Simulated scan of single mutants.
Amino acid sequence: MKPFDVGLAVAVAVIWGLAFVASRLALDELSPALMTAMRFAIAALPCLFVRRPNVPWRVLIAISATLFLGQFLAQSWAIAHGVPVGLASVIVQSQALFTVAFAVLAFREIPTRMQIAGIGVAAIGLLMICGTVGFDFSVGAFAVLMISPVSFAIGNLLLRQAREVPMFDLFAWLCLVPPLPLLALAFAVDGPRATWSALVHMSLTGWVSMLFVGAISTSIAYWLWGRLLRDYTAAQVVPFALLVPFVGSAASTVVFGETFGPLRLSGMVIVVAGIAVMLLSKRPQDVPEKALPKIA
């Protein structure tokens, strides 16, 4: 890769890591449904200027419902209910494990021995993290968070049905799907008055956080990532996503004073190591290479 593009890949990973912190700041003022709705409403603004890609609506809706709505609503709900930001940034990256597993079930694509080894290592890390659940956040919050990587993995596989279309246009229109159902959910759960009041009384920190998450992390960063995947092989680009949990954890430590006990920290490191084994191994199959990494 050219040095400039290496810099872009690192910048995208840093943006996605910082987006976990920005999401947490926004969730101090907005409910998970409303925050996620605003995220995609902002990210969908380019739809005013780009044409809908040549993808059927049913495919767009299916991809967006899993890759975006399901993934980020679960993530936001879990963070709002006490799951530490740094831990969430690691758990979401486990989507790589589920992508490979679901590809076996759906497409009979058999993983290589190195991929299987990576899955085993990451699974051990997840079990170690599970051993820390219940102390500073509930089992229910952790269970909801696990919906995020599972939904993300399903979206990765559905994304195969939208190949050979402009990346920026595709993701702009994918962002158009979640806002209305999420806003309806916010009205149903929080009530119209509370929802409107939260929007009217948002602080400058809240607005800046939402603009960062919606415009920079979701819209711009995905476009840059798509450009890199267009110009280089996924094997060259995707490993940069391993920087995301480290950036998210470090930023959370600085901003929120988040700390990790020995068991949880070891589990987080082992999860990332297992994913690294999967992504960096030579593979004849396409599934992990086609799997997009986590944004926040």
Score class of each variant (00 low, 15 high):
Ala9Thr: 07
Val12Cys: 02
Val12Glu: 01
Ile15Thr: 12
Gly17Val: 04
Ala22Phe: 00
Ser23Asn: 14
Glu29Trp: 01
Leu30Arg: 00
Ser31Gln: 12
Ser31Gly: 15
Met35Lys: 01
Met38Thr: 06
Phe40Trp: 01
Ile42Glu: 02
Val50Pro: 13
Asn54Phe: 03
Arg58Ile: 11
Val59Gly: 12
Thr66Asn: 04
Phe68Glu: 07
Phe68Asn: 12
Leu69Phe: 05
Gly70Cys: 11
Gln71Cys: 13
Phe72Ala: 10
Ser76Gly: 13
Val85Phe: 09
Gly86Lys: 10
Gln93Cys: 14
Gln95Ile: 07
Arg108Gly: 12
Glu109Ala: 02
Arg113Lys: 14
Met114Phe: 09
Met114His: 08
Ala123Asn: 09
Ile124Tyr: 08
Met128Gln: 11
Thr132Asp: 03
Phe137Ala: 14
Met146Glu: 08
Ser148Asn: 11
Pro149Leu: 03
Ser151Arg: 04
Ala153Met: 13
Ala153Phe: 07
Gly155His: 00
Gly155Trp: 00
Arg160Ile: 07
Ala162Asp: 04
Glu164Lys: 14
Pro166Trp: 04
Leu170Gly: 02
Val177Thr: 09
Phe187His: 04
Phe187Leu: 15
Ala188Lys: 06
Val189Glu: 12
Val189Asn: 08
Pro192Asp: 12
Ala194Ile: 08
Thr195Pro: 13
Trp196Met: 13
Ser209Met: 08
Leu211Phe: 09
Gly214Pro: 06
Ser217Gln: 11
Ser217Leu: 07
Ser219Met: 13
Trp225Tyr: 11
Asp231Glu: 14
Val238Lys: 13
Phe240Cys: 09
Thr253Asn: 05
Val254Met: 02
Leu263Cys: 11
Arg264Trp: 02
Ser266Asn: 06
Ile270Arg: 00
Ile270Asp: 00
Ala276Arg: 11
Ser281Arg: 06
Ser281Asn: 09
Arg283Leu: 05
Pro284Lys: 14
Val287Thr: 11
Leu292Ser: 13
Lys294Trp: 06
Ala296Phe: 10
